[in-house]
Design a protein around this nucleic acid. Structure first.
Lengths: 142, 142
DNA sequence: TTGATATCGGATTGAATTGGTCCTATTTAA
DNA sequence: TTAAATAGGACCAATTCAATCCGATATCAA
């Protein structure tokens, strides 16, 4: 249905929140309160994100998560791939075994790659900062 | 998971096939043979596509489906929207009732629209002909 | 008028994915 | 040693997808 998962949506919210104080160390509970996303879900996501190079985790009593880059160095593509894995608009692109490419009758022959890369390019061009914009200031003023 | 449905994939295959003989009238069975897509699935799709302005249906014994435009006037966006409906990367964009926009804590405030329109722009820029390319000639030569 | 050919509109079923939660281990600092 | 965190899965309900089939309707031709 060409839709991102809710988890990806949450991940953007969480990372955007963390980018407000980039050097701070956040715990799951911490982030949950700040973003109003349920704590178990936050925990699940931060665990997953820690496997990427977007955030770093520290275990133990003073542990937590730290952002590795600033908000303008994190693109939407980074977040999507960290949560959902590689971006493939159709099965054809990643699962060539069942793909019509192997069938002579298919008039496309794997041409979805054209669309796929065009989408990825766009997702790579938009950063967290782009998505946050000036609205946080407005919220603070309310 | 940012993936199109298989039906959308099939729809592109079907329309690409029809665009080879744009003025011809195709039946479901007809298209099924030409594309190697199962007939019931083809029938379902053509029914759905006939509700859009991409193809026109004719009932009765000499009935079938006819393409309304040439392959360079049909974009990927057209096909996706005909099969899946409007493009919304996240719930936030189309279902505002459950959306974080209503919560002051959300730092995004519906900024997914930025990404959404960027994607749609790309999908609107790529046509069926772009996806077919020169490969059909190659197939014929094999 | 009748019969053959197609589309039209829904219903249905199984499989896969997602969303959300919870539990037990492990690590670290005080 | 204890408290505070993350790590890694398991789990289940709900939704969506994939694929098919059926009865109704429309059209043309004999």
């Amino acid at each position: 249905m060409l839709r991102l998962t809710k988890l990806t949506d949450y991940a953007v919210v969480i990372l955007a929140q963390m980018s407000q104080e980039p050097s701070q160390r956040y715990t799951s509970a911490n982030v949950a309160v700040a973003t109003a996303v349920p704590e178990p879900t936050v925990a699940k996501l931060l665990k997953e994100l820690a496997k990427s190079d977007l955030i770093t985790s520290a275990r133990g009593s003073l542990g937590g998560y730290t952002l590795n880059r600033t908000g303008d160095a994190i693109t939407v593509r980074h977040v999507i791939e960290a949560v959902e894995g590689p971006i493939n608009l159709v099965q054809c692109v990643d699962d060539l075994s069942t793909c019509c490419v192997t069938q002579k009758k298919c008039p496309l022959r794997g041409r979805w790659g054209l669309v796929n890369t065009a989408i990825i390019d766009q997702l790579d061009r938009i950063t967290l900062n782009d998505m946050i914009g000036p609205t946080l200031v407005q919220i603070a003023a309310e």
